[in-house]
Amino acid sequence: MLKRTIAAVALLGAGVAWWITAPKPIAHATETALMTAPADAEAGEQVFWAAGCASCHVAPGAEETDAPSLAGGQAFASEFGTFYAPNITPAPEGIGGWTLIEFANAVMAGVSPEGAHYYPAFPYTAYAKATPEDIAALYAFMQTLPADATASKPHDVGFPFNIRRSLGGWKFMFGTPDGPKLPSANDSVQRGQYLSEALAHCTECHTSRNALGGLDTSKWLGGAPNPNGKGRIPNITPAKLDWSERDLMAYFTTGLTPDYDSAGGHMASVVQNLARLPEKDRKAIVDYLKAVPPVAEP
């Protein structure tokens, strides 16, 4: 009897674990909204730059032109291994032939057309917050970009992180990181919150993580060690970021800091992307940064 109970509990546990780690596609309601959304490539171009797709997916050293080739190959070091951005051009080696729903499952749920988990180096936990209309528009725009036949490079990740199924557990624990509640946010702050949290994914670098790589949402945008191993990514909450609104607007347009140094590294790419957005969207991000709760971190 006892033996049978233990066996039943073990079986139940295994079943729960299997269920938790299974790749879960987007919700049915999201699918329906995607299918009825207009294929607006022009709107998708704005989503594309706001979401910063090109910064990681152009070939190493390639320029982010108006219609960039997203051939992939850039390396992203982390304490879990090195990830290589894949080819996401409309070619067989990339996302050629993917349906809108397959694309949305990849971008919003981190699930591949074959039904496997993607590593969260790809910021689908942010894009999950995007509207189906924006994702449908992004899909339409990305079909217009040049195709490239470069094969995607496999990630260089060690055990146990190389077991894709284990990412189901990661998603269960950390897959829906909530940004700060901003109850008195006006329209511009709300727009800035959407742009920053759902598309520009600022928090992926500017918020610290726990030992398993989950975001510490209580320290939202409070800065983090650089995953490359050198230096820190700055705290951009009002506790540390004392730049004026004018300074921030100038930085997001020119890349020049208030003391006239320039952005470098990945932030230089971010600024290039933001400089392509309408001025009111840059202003919205500035308003959001002024509204987020201060985090007292170095």
Partner: peptide, 20 residues
């Protein structure tokens, strides 16, 4: 002009200057 000037600074600093 500031956009072009700042863009030229970043374009070189991005690949060739070590981040702080």
């Amino acid at each position: 002009s500031m956009k072009d000037l700042g863009g030229a600074c970043s374009a070189c600093h991005k690949p060739y200057r070590e981040p702080e």
